[in-house]
Design a protein around this nucleic acid. Structure first.
Lengths: 136, 136
DNA sequence: CTGAATCCCTTAAGATACTG
DNA sequence: CAGTATCTTAAGGGATTCAG
């Protein structure tokens, strides 16, 4: 796997966090688990449409290995549910901050897209500063 | 570059955030800019030792393209400083949450490493729940 | 010092098929 | 349904060189 690319000893706490959540879909998976608390594999597959079956399995396995999530067997054979561990729950502020910013960003981008004539006055009314609408 | 892999319209705000900060070193760069406010290329190179010259240039270019940071010319020719834009500054809660968690995690891991006999009682005294010390 | 360009190897990740 | 395995292609990323 070779995921431990960051030098956590170097004093940058952000690198330590990335060690755990830097996977392409990990923070998205965690977001959905914070919303839904427990999900089957297929639930996540449906929620995260751009993540392939294979990738979802890999990301879940890594999160489980890092003890961020746990796989809990159910009476329905071979259909476990995924839940956040106590450790995983400590990541809530991180995921929440990301979700909050994303909502903010989406709202801003929607507004930008609507007002085609974006002059300075109108821009100043937006709640998020700046970025020009050529981004998406 | 093909970085717009996330479906921001699908209603997952975390994916929108990843669109901007998912680069391998972007959040680390932003962290250092939040701490130091403005840096030369070589400052960042020194702070982020595991990020190669080439990668740093690429990540900075993408952040600049996304208008998260800006390159400001100085009187010293060809030696601009990098600063956060107003838009980039809105990411502060996200980066701060990551940094806070990373500090927390590092402190926990240090404690775990120190107490070799980790029985349940001692574990319960840690401020972060769980993960076994076999992780790093 | 910056930063773009080239070369070249490694890793990521989609598609598909297969197993319990 | 959940998960693994293989095969293949594209992207990532280091080392080095070159230019402003």
């Amino acid at each position: 796997m070779k995921r431990h690319i960051y030098d956590c000893q170097a004093g940058c706490p952000v690198e330590s966090t990335l060690q755990i959540i830097a996977g392409k879909w990990k923070s998205v998976i965690l977001y959905h688990l914070f919303v839904d608390h427990n999900c089957h594999f297929s639930d996540l597959e449906r929620k995260i449409k751009d993540c392939s079956h294979r990738m979802l399995a890999i990301q879940l396995a890594e999160l489980e290995h890092d003890q961020v999530i746990a796989k809990i067997p159910t009476n329905t054979a071979n259909r476990p549910i995924y839940v956040l561990t106590e450790f995983g729950k400590t990541l809530k502020p991180v995921i929440t901050a990301m979700a909050t910013w994303g909502d903010y960003y989406n709202a801003h981008m929607t507004k930008e897209a609507q007002q085609l004539d974006t002059n300075e006055d109108k821009k100043s009314k937006l709640d998020m500063p700046l970025p020009k609408p050529n981004l998406l």
